[in-house]
């Protein structure tokens, strides 16, 4: 498994692929049930409202709102960056948080053993990256993320 910059996977697989991932297909099916469901419920409430129960008007406005929200959510689900989802997303998030947690201790403190730590960490990281090209690629990806956010 390789870690690629955001959007690369889709660029490689062509334009249509984001509509056919497992997540996308679950979203399509849910929307296909949700929209008719909301339409039927709204129509039912319009009937109740016309029958003289004023509360029906409240719900006959609400159900189309549910349908609209469902459509917006569906759009978001389709367009979420796959690199930030699922296990990949959790790993990415953990790595970013670990980096963030490390950051304050990076400043050199004169005469304290903590000052030694960054060098040691850097050496070990370089060693680990040399052993594992996948890790090196992932770290490069994280660095690119950091650069983009800072820039």
């Amino acid at each position: 498994m390789t870690f690629l910059p955001a959007g690369t996977r889709q660029a490689m697989h062509g334009r249509g692929s984001r509509w056919l991932t497992k997540r996308a297909i679950i979203a399509h099916i849910t929307l296909a049930i949700w929209i008719p469901g909301c339409a039927v419920a709204a129509w039912w409430q319009v009937g109740i409202a016309l029958g003289g129960n004023g509360l029906g008007w409240v719900y006959s406005v609400m159900w189309p709102c549910f349908g609209l929200f469902g459509t917006i959510f569906w759009w978001f689900l389709i367009h979420d960056d796959p690199e930030t989802l699922g296990a990949r997303g959790v790993r990415q998030q953990r790595a970013l948080q670990a980096l963030a947690a490390e950051a304050p201790s990076r400043g050199p403190v004169a005469g304290s053993p903590v000052a030694e730590q960054p060098d040691d960490m850097t050496t070990r990281l370089a060693q680990a990256e040399a052993d594992d090209p996948e890790l090196a690629a992932y770290n490069a990806y994280l660095a690119s993320l950091a650069d983009r956010d800072n820039g």
Binding site: L96, Q97, L99, A100, A101, E102, A103, P104, R106, A143, L145, A146, D147, D149, N150
Partner: peptide, 9 residues
């Protein structure tokens, strides 16, 4: 409190 989400290089 969490440090800034992205560390400074």
């Amino acid at each position: 409190e969490m440090a800034p989400a992205v560390p400074q290089p």
